[in-house]
Simulated scan of single mutants.
Amino acid sequence: MKAGVVSVQGAAPEHVRALQQAMAGLGVKGAVVSVRRPSDLEEVSCLVIPGGESTTISKLLRRFELHDRIVRMAEEGVPMMGTCAGCVLLAKEGDAEVEKTGTRLLGLMDMGVDRNAFGRQRESFEAPLDIAGLEAPFPGVFIRGPVIRKVWGDCKVLSSYGDKIVMARQGNMLALSFHPELSGDSRVHEMLLKMI
């Protein structure tokens, strides 16, 4: 098994470690690779699009010729997880900020997102989240996270914080407002690996 982490900008190293921890926890042998160019995607069994700055990641995905390849892989059924900025990029609909910045979304999930809905960096927080499929609450780490404003079609809500949707799944794709890679808990990464 080979898991990939898009590593053009953002919290990629933390996802690499979390995936390694998840593989160990599941007793799965495999490698985790940093994805910076199309050739890095060869034989990748699943892919994480990390948090960071969604506009910058969007531009770099196009510059490094990863955008269309990632869309194709998702459409072919490769499991993917987008966290924070990655969640924004997976959406079919963005907010006014997405339009203003010219961010080109991957447009893969039937959901609309609002960027930075949880405020500024200094307003970051952690909260226990009930996630469908997990027995005990998950420590959700929110850092300038987006909110999934709405879902439709085949996109299903997996977790909410109050009245805000913070995790959704559509087929082989997971979208999260929060940062599971910063929690020390590998269960969400294990969920991704189990989708392979």
Rank of each mutant, 00 (worst) to 15 (best):
K100G: 10
D114P: 00
A96M: 13
A117N: 01
C84G: 10
W152V: 01
G82C: 08
D154M: 13
D154K: 15
G153A: 08
F142Q: 05
G102E: 11
V98A: 04
T103L: 04
L106M: 14
P139T: 03
M109E: 04
A117W: 05
A85V: 14
G119M: 12
G140C: 11
C87R: 01
T83K: 05
W152G: 00
D114A: 15
V147C: 15
A117R: 03
G86C: 03
V113P: 11
P128W: 03
V151N: 03
G82M: 05
K100W: 10
M109I: 10
L89E: 12
E99H: 08
T103N: 04
A136V: 13
G86M: 08
L129Q: 08
C84H: 15
P137Y: 05
K100F: 12
I131P: 00
P146V: 04
W152E: 06
R115I: 03
V141N: 10
R120E: 07
L106R: 14
C84M: 11
L134F: 10
W152I: 02
D110P: 06
I148Q: 11
A96Q: 14
D114Q: 14
R144Y: 09
G82Q: 01
V88I: 15
R104K: 15
T103Y: 02
F138E: 02
W152D: 00
E123Y: 01
G133L: 05
R149M: 04
I143R: 13
K100T: 12
Q121L: 05
D110A: 03
P139L: 10
G112Q: 13
G133V: 01
P128M: 03
R122D: 15
L129M: 09
V113D: 09
A132R: 15
S124D: 08
I143W: 14
A96H: 12
F125K: 11
L106A: 10
G94F: 01
K150G: 10
S124T: 03
R104N: 04
E135T: 08
V157A: 07
L134V: 12
V98M: 05
A132T: 14
E97T: 14
E135W: 04
E123V: 00
F138H: 04
M109S: 01
M111K: 00
I143L: 13
V113N: 09
A85F: 11
A96E: 15
G107V: 01
T101C: 15
R104D: 06
W152P: 00
D110I: 06
T83Y: 10
F138M: 01
S124L: 07
E99V: 03
A91T: 06
L106G: 14
K156A: 13
T83D: 06
F118K: 01
D154I: 11
A132W: 09
V157D: 02
P146H: 08
A91C: 04
L129E: 10
L134H: 09
T83W: 05
L129I: 06
P139S: 09
R115H: 09
G94C: 04
V151A: 06
V147N: 14
C155I: 09
